[in-house]
Design a protein around this nucleic acid. Structure first.
Length: 420
RNA sequence: GGAGAGGUGGCGGAGUGGCUGAACGCACCGGUUUGCUAAACCGGCAUAGUGGGAAACUGCUAUCGAGGGUUCAAAUCCCUCCUUCUCCA
């Protein structure tokens, strides 16, 4: 959420940013609403002051056994006026809020303006494309090795759900444990195991609501949402809190399943593990001082890259253009790995700096020291990383002539076997 | 599922209708004193909105889990919800 005063003072800039982000929020009326809001406040506060003063007089009169009927009658009228003005103020503020919560975060100046992923900027590429003469599609590999069962996933839940079976399940768990341990031991993270279902307030805090409501699974009976990423519970871990400046930066990592309806996505792009309704991901979330956030984006991105490097994956870092940068993000770096079977770059990580956008929504502040004024923290998060496409790359890049897959060395101690 | 008790400032904890933005304590900041440390003493110490002012600063309003209600006046009374704890099944 952007600061109301900032919006009003930079209306054209904010409008341009909305369009840069391919969003459609209409904010033209917000100035009128804000002016009306202030008119009401000035008048209603004058009346409240009158009421407070006279109420004290009434208390004094009553204490001295004097008659206060006249004052009480007057204040009853004043109170009625106050009530109706309070109502109008609430309505106006609601209208302002409805506009405000749909305004996306302002992109960082270094973000290229663009409409689609074609306008994204490849920052650099790490490693090189190796030729695997035996490369096959991951679906074929998984089926022949019996490590993923798509059909039964569809039977039990629906299209876009799958079972990992046998060594596939073990490898999946190994990936998760490898990455969580890596961030804890090598990057100084604290591990959290969060709830996977959260309330509306949390979804609002990180910016999924109201815009992304259609993309999430929901339990209507409880108004609870299945998390689309651990970012939601982990960022909201500190919802409403006042953090200490000396404790920053705070770095959490968390494994969670991620639930996404992926409304509207069909066809080749959704084959196999490429786009599924439930997948596992290890997430990193940082809380930092405002002046550190851009530097922290570099750090968190490189922490995700460490995972890919350690697994010997050829990847590239992509700076998303404005149109591809998500609602709440100011700047996002995607990491894409090369898969030899699909012969495609697949996104496995998205590292974003949200500046104070989420912190303002979730009311997460900090004090630099005991006497300092509260400020909003800056939040960042990065996938470190999502497993399905990692699995795709591991299968496709390491499949051998005999059809078996060699497990990358760092994972072996986590899964207990060196090939499938 | 049933019964009951709570949720107050950074923390602990008073407070059952007006003199309470909130006693007291802790923490923290400034100062005095002590050879240093510790202790003692004095003072300060919430957030947001809105107005005035170039600014320093300052007036007002709101805020005691959240939202409604009663009342001239609500931390205090009523209702709904969230949440914590104790006991019962």
């Amino acid at each position: 959420m952007l600061d109301l005063r900032f919006i009003c003072e930079n209306l054209e800039f904010v409008k341009q940013n909305i369009s840069n982000k391919n969003e459609k929020a209409d904010i033209s009326e917000i100035l009128n609403f804000d002016n009306r809001r202030r008119e009401i406040i000035i008048e209603v506060e004058r009346l409240k002051n009158l009421r407070n003063v006279v109420s004290k007089d009434i208390a004094e009169l009553k204490k001295n056994k004097h008659d206060a009927d006249k004052q009480i009658a007057e204040m009853k009228e004043v109170s009625d006026t106050i009530k109706s003005m309070d109502d109008e103020q609430r309505e106006v503020e609601q209208k302002i809020r409805e506009i405000q919560i749909r305004i996306p975060n302002v992109t960082h100046p270094s973000v290229p303006i663009g409409k689609t992923e074609d306008d994204n900027k490849i920052v650099y590429t790490w490693g090189e494309k190796k030729e695997n003469p035996h490369a096959k599609n991951h679906i074929e590999i998984a089926k022949s090795l019996g490590i993923v069962d798509f059909e039964r996933g569809a039977k039990v839940s629906g299209a876009g759900f799958h079972f990992y079976t046998g060594k596939g399940a073990k490898l999946e768990r190994a990936l998760i444990n490898y990455m969580v341990d890596y961030h804890v031991e090598k990057h100084g993270y604290t591990e959290l195991m969060p709830p996977f279902v959260v309330n509306e307030n949390s979804m609002f805090g990180t910016g999924q609501l109201p815009k992304m409501a259609e993309d999430m699974y929901k339990s209507d009976a409880d108004s609870m949402y299945f998390i689309p990423t651990a970012e939601v519970p982990v960022t909201n871990f500190h919802n409403g809190e006042m953090l200490k400046g000396e404790d920053l930066p705070i770095k959490y990592t968390a494994y969670s399943p991620c639930f996404r309806r992926e409304a509207g996505g069909y066809g080749k792009e959704v084959r196999g593990l490429l786009r599924v309704h439930q997948f596992n991901k290890v997430e990193m979330v940082n809380f930092v001082k405002p002046e550190d956030s851009m530097n922290q984006l570099e750090i968190i991105t490189s922490e995700a890259e460490d995972i890919l490097k350690s697994l010997g994956l050829h990847y590239r870092r992509v700076l998303l253009c404005s149109g591809d940068t998500s609602f709440a993000s100011a700047i996002t770096m995607d990491l894409e790995i090369w898969t030899q079977g699909e012969a495609k770059w697949l996104e496995v990580s998205s590292c974003s700096c949200f500046t104070d956008f989420q912190a303002r929504r979730a009311n997460i502040r900090f004090k630099r020291d005991a006497t300092a004024k509260p400020e909003f923290v800056h939040t960042l998060n990065g996938s470190g990383v999502a497993t399905p496409r990692l699995m795709v790359a591991i299968l496709e890049n390491n499949v051998r002539e005999d059809g078996h897959v060699t497990i990358p060395e760092p994972l072996r101690q986590f899964c207990g076997f060196d090939e499938i």
